[in-house]
């Protein structure tokens, strides 16, 4: 005797996860185009480390069903790599992968049970422990060893030194270059265009919904817009905020992580909107030039609360 239903969608964790992997390929390609083969080697290192750490834990320590190749560790590896500079030393990539998989994911019980986005925990661990290596950015399209500040870095330093934003905007790449990815930064975050193409694929395959990213982008746009209207000499305009740094990568790929985001559309909108506001808040008033990672991790902690209060509308009530 088996209970209904007797037919299934055929959807599986691996199919969803590998769809996400495929959707990240355009951003990978732009990363390699801008930063050279180093971008690929960092990504491969992170992916292989993540999968091996998960496999070793499941096979030898936890002695559980092995799901290291279900695609989720691959995504964690790719996203960790996408959130670091392409010149990051090999050892640090492995340490970041260890923190992401062992500390942030498996110690909470593995896929589905972790509270914080594993790749971001790995990234923030590296950023706070190895701030120099994590903020030494290779110059786009340059030979090895040449470094340059990122647009957000230029903005942060410049405003701190008292330069008006209008002058600083002359020093950063054009909006078109920011959109296409001809700019400095982390491997996967530079091209909004490539990330959007990948995300369109995910929407088409119904892997994710639009709620979190749209809410986050609206949050970034509106809050930075308000600040900009208050004082355009101290605060960058919304378009710059939306196209620079990790906003696109964060909105489309980090905040949409199934496990660490809310379950209902209304919850997702609140979650996304709050991440957007927090990101701009940290960028504009915090010590770091970029705040997307911190904003997402902070909001990850609120997900259980959001789920508790954002119920779907019950039919008939």
């Amino acid at each position: 005797m088996a209970l209904s239903p007797h037919e299934y969608s055929g959807q599986s964790i691996s199919k969803l996860m590998y769809a996400v992997v495929i959707s990240l390929l355009p951003a990978m390609a732009v990363g390699i185009y801008v930063f050279g083969w180093a971008a690929l080697s960092v990504t491969v290192t992170a992916v292989v480390s993540c999968v091996i750490f998960e496999y070793v834990l499941q096979a030898f320590v936890l002695k559980r069903r092995i799901t290291a190749l279900d695609g989720s560790a691959v995504i964690t590896g790719i996203l960790l790599a996408f959130n670091v500079p392409s010149n990051l030393p090999f050892g640090l990539i492995v340490i970041g992968s260890f923190v992401a998989i062992v500390v942030a994911k498996m110690s909470f019980g593995g896929l589905g049970n972790n509270i914080f986005n594993p790749a971001l925990v790995g990234r923030v661990f590296l950023l706070t422990s190895f701030p120099v290596q994590m903020t030494t950015w290779p110059k786009p399209f340059a030979v090895d060893g040449v470094t340059a500040a990122t647009p957000l870095g230029i903005m942060k330093e410049g405003v701190a030194a008292g330069s008006p934003v209008s002058d600083l905007m002359q020093q950063v790449p054009s909006y078109l270059d920011l959109f296409l990815g001809k700019t400095g930064g982390c491997i996967g975050e530079v091209s909004a265009a490539a990330l959007l193409i990948g995300f369109a694929f995910l929407l088409w395959r119904k892997v994710v919904t639009w709620h979190t990213p749209v809410a986050m982008l609206v949050g970034v746009g509106m809050f930075s817009g308000i600040l900009w209207m208050i004082d355009p000499s101290r605060f960058a305009n919304p378009v710059f905020h939306l196209l620079s740094g990790g906003v696109m990568l964060g909105a489309l790929y980090m905040a949409t992580d199934y496990v660490t985001s809310p379950m209902t559309p209304r919850g997702m909108m609140i979650f996304g909107g709050a991440i957007g506001i927090l990101s701009v808040l940290i960028r504009s008033f915090g010590a770091y030039p970029e705040g997307v990672s911190f904003a997402i991790l902070i909001m990850n902690a609120f997900v259980p609360l959001i789920d508790k209060f954002c119920k779907p509308r019950r039919f008939g009530e």
Binding site: G109, G110, G112, M263
Partner: peptide
């Protein structure tokens, strides 16, 4: 086989 909930919604 039943896996853990991944909270996909």
């Amino acid at each position: 086989d039943m896996m853990d909930c991944i909270r996909c919604g």
